[in-house]
């Protein structure tokens, strides 16, 4: 086992293949740990981590906090809503104030793309990007690939389609980087208005017919329509979106093979997937959540081992 090539996890773009392999191997060990009756190890008892969330989150924040506590790190939480950010404090000032309380690592979610990269250049702490605007969400992509690897044995050579709002999705971009790095074939599928121009330049295929995309793939990663980010109308109605890009059980049953259904959450049941699909045997949505803790433990552990 080596060490990561990076000191921060800002995006999958900055990782290489062996980084991902190392994170997965480490996550295997932690997955065993979190399935014991005592789910905690004392590795990081001298590390303090600040979770700074400038944007709403349930799963990611709980998952990070749990991962940190399972590693015995001290954890402080901060949500922008209840803070002095509202009084006009800048990002660097906010973070430096937190760091002067002797914090070693910052997990940050921020609505602006590149916020993590900016921070890593100006403060002295390991930064983990927990989502920066429509840019990247690296731990989500890692746990998605890890879940595929767990379910299908390998990521390389698998056909993965990402369905939905690709334009506003940091999950999509991080997933594309991660899947390509591991040698998977990737297609994106959605209404033309929600597919970024030049997306092919990332080496992914484009498909606007859902049925065709599903017949091609081994894994379908269904994204949520992010109504909060849709500033203009990208499709006529939610109902029409569901008719064209929603997956239901009848459609799954009509495919030539059994595909794996993934979703990063939160699910809008009845929009991108129906309840019977979300709760079906083909869905690994809850496995993704479980793996999220193991992956985040691995990332935090590996980054912490580089803090001297």
């Amino acid at each position: 086992m080596g060490e990561l090539s990076v000191n921060h996890l800002l995006g999958i773009k900055y990782l290489n293949e062996s980084d991902i392999e190392l994170i997965f191997e480490t996550a295997d060990h932690f997955k065993e740990v979190i399935n014991r009756s005592i789910k905690k190890v004392p590795s990081l008892r001298d590390i303090t981590i600040a979770n700074i969330f400038f944007e709403n989150s349930t799963r990611t924040r709980l998952s990070f906090e749990l991962a940190e506590k399972r590693l015995s790190a001290d954890v402080i939480n901060f949500s922008a809503g209840q803070s002095s950010v509202k009084k006009g404090e800048t990002l660097i000032d906010t973070v430096n104030n937190i760091l002067s309380m002797k914090v070693d690592m910052v997990v940050m979610r921020h609505p602006n793309p590149g916020a993590g990269i900016f921070l890593s250049k100006h403060v002295k702490a390991a930064i983990v990007n927990a989502g920066d605007g429509a840019h990247e969400h690296p731990t989500q992509a890692l746990l998605d690939s890890y879940s595929i690897r767990e379910k299908l044995g390998d990521v390389a050579g698998k056909n993965v389609v990402i369905v939905g709002d690709i334009l506003h999705s940091r999950v999509a971009l991080s997933n594309i980087f991660a899947l390509k790095l591991q040698g998977a074939n990737v297609k994106v599928c959605g209404p033309k208005t929600l597919l970024p121009k030049y997306i092919e330049s990332l080496g992914v295929g484009v498909e606007t017919n859902l049925k065709k995309a599903l017949n091609w793939c081994d894994v379908a990663n269904m994204l949520r329509i992010q109504n909060e980010r849709l500033d203009i109308s990208y499709f006529p109605t939610t109902r029409e979106y569901t008719q064209q890009f929603g997956v239901n059980k009848a459609m799954l049953n009509s495919l030539d093979k059994e595909i794996v259904i993934m979703h990063p959450g939160p699910i809008n049941r009845g929009v991108e997937i129906t309840s019977d699909v979300a709760d079906s045997k083909q869905s690994i949505i809850l496995n993704q959540v479980e793996n999220g803790v193991a992956i985040r433990m691995a990332v935090i552990y590996l980054l912490a081992s580089k803090i001297k």
Partner: peptide, 22 residues
């Protein structure tokens, strides 16, 4: 039993600690 995550020399050694299967 793997003891990697229970060691008291985490971050003190030159090389990162290598975990094994429990």
């Amino acid at each position: 039993l793997d003891i990697t995550f229970y060691r008291d020399d985490f971050r003190r050694g030159e090389k990162p600690l290598e975990a094994n299967k429990t």
